[in-house]
Simulated scan of single mutants.
Amino acid sequence: MSPGQQRPLFGWPDQRTLDSWRRGDCAHAPRDVLIRISYVLGIYTALHTIFPNELQADGWMMCPSSAPLFAGQSAIDPVAEEGVDGMAAVRKYLDARLN
């Protein structure tokens, strides 16, 4: 995922801040950003648990889905359109698939 795609996921930080977070300096990140990071990590972990193939797990977010939640769109679409609420919906969907 490019930095341009990452910025909206984390609440539109400037590039320097995003680079700092990417290096692991999240100590001063706002609560909203920490929640977003938590969702991203949970989605990543769920995908790599569901799909044994790393390429499939890494690509799933960008592929169109027939699941009712996505209605033919990819999972990244509600994330990009709805922010934290979209992340929560995707995470809930994946958690249900794990159970």
Score class of each variant (00 low, 15 high):
residue 62 M to I: 14
residue 84 V to K: 02
residue 64 P to N: 15
residue 51 F to W: 14
residue 50 I to Q: 03
residue 44 Y to H: 12
residue 52 P to G: 13
residue 81 E to W: 07
residue 6 Q to G: 00
residue 88 A to C: 14
residue 97 R to E: 09
residue 11 G to A: 09
residue 66 S to P: 03
residue 29 A to M: 06
residue 98 L to K: 07
residue 69 L to K: 02
residue 64 P to Y: 11
residue 85 D to W: 02
residue 59 G to Q: 02
residue 95 D to F: 11
residue 73 Q to A: 12
residue 61 M to Q: 15
residue 89 A to D: 09
residue 29 A to V: 07
residue 76 I to V: 13
residue 35 I to E: 12
residue 47 L to V: 04
residue 63 C to V: 10
residue 28 H to W: 09
residue 80 A to P: 04
residue 8 P to K: 01
residue 54 E to P: 08
residue 7 R to H: 07
residue 97 R to G: 13
residue 14 D to R: 01
residue 71 A to E: 12
residue 39 Y to T: 07
residue 46 A to P: 01
residue 79 V to Q: 04
residue 44 Y to Q: 08
residue 67 A to P: 06
residue 86 G to Q: 03
residue 87 M to L: 14
residue 51 F to I: 08
residue 88 A to P: 00
residue 65 S to N: 10
residue 55 L to K: 09
residue 10 F to V: 15
residue 28 H to Y: 09
residue 18 L to G: 03
residue 35 I to Q: 12
residue 61 M to I: 15
residue 17 T to R: 05
residue 67 A to G: 10
residue 97 R to W: 09
residue 1 M to Y: 13
residue 63 C to S: 10
residue 25 D to N: 13
residue 81 E to Y: 08
residue 97 R to I: 06
residue 5 Q to D: 11
residue 95 D to H: 12
residue 99 N to T: 11
residue 62 M to S: 10
residue 11 G to F: 05
residue 47 L to K: 00
residue 70 F to M: 07
residue 56 Q to I: 13
residue 59 G to P: 00
residue 29 A to T: 08
residue 57 A to W: 00
residue 59 G to S: 04
residue 33 V to S: 01
residue 11 G to H: 07
residue 22 R to L: 03
residue 93 Y to W: 14
residue 50 I to A: 08
residue 86 G to N: 01
residue 65 S to A: 15
residue 72 G to K: 06
residue 9 L to T: 03
residue 21 W to G: 01
residue 95 D to E: 10
residue 72 G to H: 08
residue 10 F to R: 05
